[in-house]
Amino acid sequence: MNRRTFIKTLAGGALALSLEAGLGSLPSSALRAQGFPDLVATRGTNLTAMFDKSLEALGGLGQFVKSGQTVLVKPNMGWAIDPAGGANTNPVLVSHIIKNVLNLGAKKVYVFDNTCDNWNDAYQVSGLEKAATEAGATVAPANSTGYFQKVDLPGETTLKSTQYHELYLEADVVINVPVLKHHGGARMTAALKNMMGAIYDRRPLHRNGLDETIPELMLYKKPNLNVVEAVRVMISGGPRGHGDSRYLSSQMMIVSPDPVAADMASAKLLEAAGIKIPEYIEQGAKIGLGVADLEKLNIQRLTAA
């Protein structure tokens, strides 16, 4: 190592550290300091029980949401496909999270997604609009540029800038609730990829390569908590799903404030079904969003009754 590379490495490390400190209200290191795990994986089939058990292990949802805060719950509801198809986050889970957030005294809970199918159809057919509204959240549209604001991304990025939904920018707390599934373009979609529904124009990401650009969407503002639903996971024909799509009954929920760790654990599930680990996870670790090496993390493995 010569002096130049040494200084570069040092500078890179300092940048990563400063980003880590600046992003998210409660980084996993803070949880660790309190003796809580960095990531909780809970097996089971009952989504509400799995969520409760996971959050109990992390010290409760109160670690992430305080009374009076505005909370965004960001599911994947991009498709006009009913819950059985596994293309969207399960409404039961989203509804349960919203109720818990409101019980903690949150001022307002928002739900939106910039859908792939026609937004009205997707909101309705996914069952999420109804479930979220009944649980007490405000379901907002995300189908026109008027709801989005252009933001310059910090540091050296490929994207340089993107347009975030105003509610994503406004929220004090963002709870990212993706469904894990195969993705024809990005190989897999979970926590990092779900941010593509929080921005308006996705074409620059596709144009410049998804592996490079997907993690950059979390550089400006990182979700405070990621809850990956992986009970019955679509392992072919994703993200939409086709009549011949196959599923993996993995019966899992992966919860972590670290989106990179959550995605890596999710990728290991898909790897068991023969899907290669997407490169964007390592890329996310490289730009300082979290830890991709699960060996280095304190993982708690649970089973919900």
Partner: peptide
């Protein structure tokens, strides 16, 4: 196609195709 030209990941077409006529 960007995937063929740049060897990057995209798949936007296959993602949206409702019938599976376009797949990765």
């Amino acid at each position: 196609c960007v995937v063929v030209r740049n060897r990057t990941s995209c798949g936007a077409c296959a993602e949206l195709c409702p019938t599976g006529a376009v797949r990765m």
